[in-house]
């Protein structure tokens, strides 16, 4: 431990406070009883698909596309997830299938 127990506790609380602020802010700005402006309602509808796309890219942020294997394990596994999902539309099957394939790819094939 670099910090004292008291300092560690303060850091934990500071991280919690910062994180919680980002979670509560929208709910404070637009309380339940008041109707939010239409632009907020619009964003509420448009943001989920946009953020899901963003999160997929975010998960791939550390892939080095320019050096071997050029993101091949990620792309193959994502293609498998998508194919499985379009075929059976079973969330668990798609995710388990893709993950097992990815583990084989990074541990054995492209290792």
């Amino acid at each position: 431990m670099t910090l004292t127990p008291f300092q560690t506790l303060v850091i934990i609380l500071a991280v919690a406070a910062g994180t919680q602020l980002t979670r509560w802010l929208p709910f404070w700005l637009f309380p339940e009883k008041k109707r939010p402006p239409t632009v907020v309602t619009y964003l509420g509808r448009a943001l989920p698909p946009a953020m899901m796309g963003l999160l997929v890219v975010y998960c791939l942020k550390s892939v080095s596309w320019l050096s071997a294997p050029h993101g091949a394990p990620e792309l193959i596994a994502i293609a498998a997830v998508a194919a499985l999902h379009m075929w059976r539309r079973n969330v668990l099957l798609s995710i388990a299938g893709g993950t097992v394939l990815y583990m084989v790819l990074v541990q054995a094939v492209f290792a």
Binding site: M1, T2, L3, Q7, T8, V10, I11, L13, A14, V15, A16, A17, G18, T19, L21, T22, R23, W24, L25, P26, F27, F30, P36, V40, L43, G44, R45, L47, P48, M51, L54
Partner: peptide, 30 residues
């Protein structure tokens, strides 16, 4: 942050920035 000099203000600000995307989640879940 736990392995350098004690700086809770930086910890707070960094947490707000790293987690700013939560604000979008809140907006979507109103």
């Amino acid at each position: 942050l736990l392995t350098t000099a004690f700086d809770p203000v930086q910890a707070f600000l960094l947490s707000v920035m790293v987690n700013a995307r939560h604000m979008f989640y809140g907006l979507s879940l109103l």
